[in-house]
Design a protein around this nucleic acid. Structure first.
Lengths: 191, 191, 191, 191
DNA sequence: CATGAATGAGACTTCATTCAT
DNA sequence: CATGAATGAAGTCTCATTCAT
């Protein structure tokens, strides 16, 4: 299901990513990509069947990275690992992250929208599992509905990342994430 | 700075809003607007100087609505009122809300981006004030940094609204918002 | 169902017709049309929603002309009138006729193909009616199956017209048509 | 003038034929051919100098098949043999037949057009010879001009084949051809 | 014999905008 | 206030073909 990309394909995805990060999805055009690579537009079609496939490759790349998660942890530790992983990912490839975290951009492209929705759901289910474990293990309080719990943890993280992006990385994302984690621990621990 | 819109201009903004909500910013074209209004494209230019002005009018309208906030409350009550106000706004004009909550869409249009960033900042500062009051009044615990507090409250709300939008309003937004509020109260109250 | 065309639209259809007649359907491109009219390609889209609509207008024009048939006649006289009408039409607007008589050109464009197939069927049924009348009235012999009869009459006419077209009108179509008619009368009359 | 084709070349012609039959001449592209053969587009150029040569090979193949006619017969028997041969050919290689019977498709490619026109003429002259023999031998009536006779016989056959093609082979072509032959015999025999 | 990579032309279409009326 | 007609730029994509390997 996942195809290895050729070096050229990777170059293309890189550029695509860059373009979206620079100017939103509206900035991602075949023409722009080809111009950046000093190629004809037609040349791109030797590497991808079309724009959609480029975006899919782009999204899949992110999916791949997210899935490289450390699976050894459980419960609250796993939740914190996920938060860390997310921000690291954002820091390592800010373009990619910015793109994938703003699903609305892809409205109107049903296929992409669904790909992203699927990713989000998958991520959500994994986390819910860990929340349950954390509750069962007595690591966190049990009087918060699980879906609300998810929102309480992921919502702030998303907002943090969005603020970081909108401000062009003007603060230390990792430090703020650690602050957030600490606050969450305080709030959610069984008192 | 803020001009009263003519009835026709309001119609145009309505349609523009609808179009963005339907298919993202990429769906907002002069042609689409004019088609919906049974007008010529040229006719729109009698009411607005161009597309940018339409978007500005659109964003300004939202700004106006948010500012209609009840100013009589203070502290935590004011925070909860803001949450309520937000979701009510989403329910009343889902298009408007959906649009303005996804800032990334407007990347590439520096002017718009800044307008939105400004709104977000203004909103943030107002809330921070109320948080401080709430802490000072002993309504909520004081061991969480204020900016983190902001994220902890607004982050989940935004995520909630986004989920509601992505799922096409498939759950009761108000009820879930109340659940969120309750959870927040539990977590944040001085124990 | 049938829309009056604006003068500009008629100009466009004229040119389209000409282009197909000149070089087959492959010669009908938006660019070619616009070049002939000294227009931008974009300008065409103010008059037609797309290429398909142009072709539809083109085909409808033919349909309209065919339907202007004299309905007062019956039986064999009606058949002969149809033959006459066809060749007159070819002579009057050779481009149009040549285009519509070669259905294969439009393979691959399901919509067009069906439009033409419908026309052909309609035409066939009308003729079959007249054949039956002619047989019943004793004008022509009754020992030929009706569908074969149709082929025996229309097949030669089509071939005649095709030969005329392929030879670039190098013979007198009307005279040959009359010869054909006469031969058919000889062959089909009750001996 | 006629070269033996290599096996690979024959494969290519086969596919080309198929493509035209499926979607008209517009469906015949180098890319489509190569895709069907699991080849690179570039690879085709090792076998043919270009698209034109492929089409020429395609048409020549048909010419070859038609010329394999049984030459032992004369007069009306030869005519009927030709009709039979045609429909058999259509049944055996429907793609080939459908393609070559619609000369208009190749308008715009002067070379091809002429090739086909030549074939048609050659075929016509052969048949005219047989008609004359048949008339001279008193097998068929002599009061029909020879060229009209040609149209009366070949026109219906072509139409029959075209109908069979357009209806995707929905009736028994051989049986209908026999019916046609019988009717022709009735009509043309010296009464 | 075949591939991978590229090109230049051209296909259809949409966009925001302008201008005369 | 509105229309009809047009434009120039840009968009995605396909085509036949070439060239080095």
């Amino acid at each position: 299901m996942k195809h290895e990309l050729t070096p050229r394909q990777n170059e293309i995805v890189d550029v695509a990513l860059h373009l979206i990060a620079e100017g939103g999805i509206g900035n991602l055009t075949i023409r722009h990509i080809s111009k950046r690579l000093n190629l004809t537009e037609a040349a791109l079609y030797a590497h991808f069947s079309g724009k959609l496939e480029i975006i899919q490759a782009l999204v899949s790349r992110f999916e791949g990275k997210v899935d490289e998660m450390d699976e050894s942890q459980r419960g609250w530790a796993a939740v914190e690992a996920a938060l860390a992983r997310r921000t690291e990912l954002v820091l390592a490839t800010p373009d990619l992250a910015r793109v994938v975290f703003s699903e609305e951009q892809f409205q109107g492209d049903r296929e992409i929208a669904q790909l992203l929705y699927g990713m989000m759901q998958h991520h959500r289910e994994t986390l819910l599992l860990h929340f349950r474990e954390a509750v069962d293990a007595g690591e966190i309080r049990g009087d918060i509905p699980l879906d609300t719990l998810f929102r309480l943890v992921i919502g702030p993280l998303r907002l943090l990342i969005k603020q970081w992006g909108l401000s062009n990385g003007s603060f230390d994302l990792t430090q703020k994430r650690l602050e957030l984690q600490e606050s969450l621990r305080k709030l959610l621990s069984r008192q």
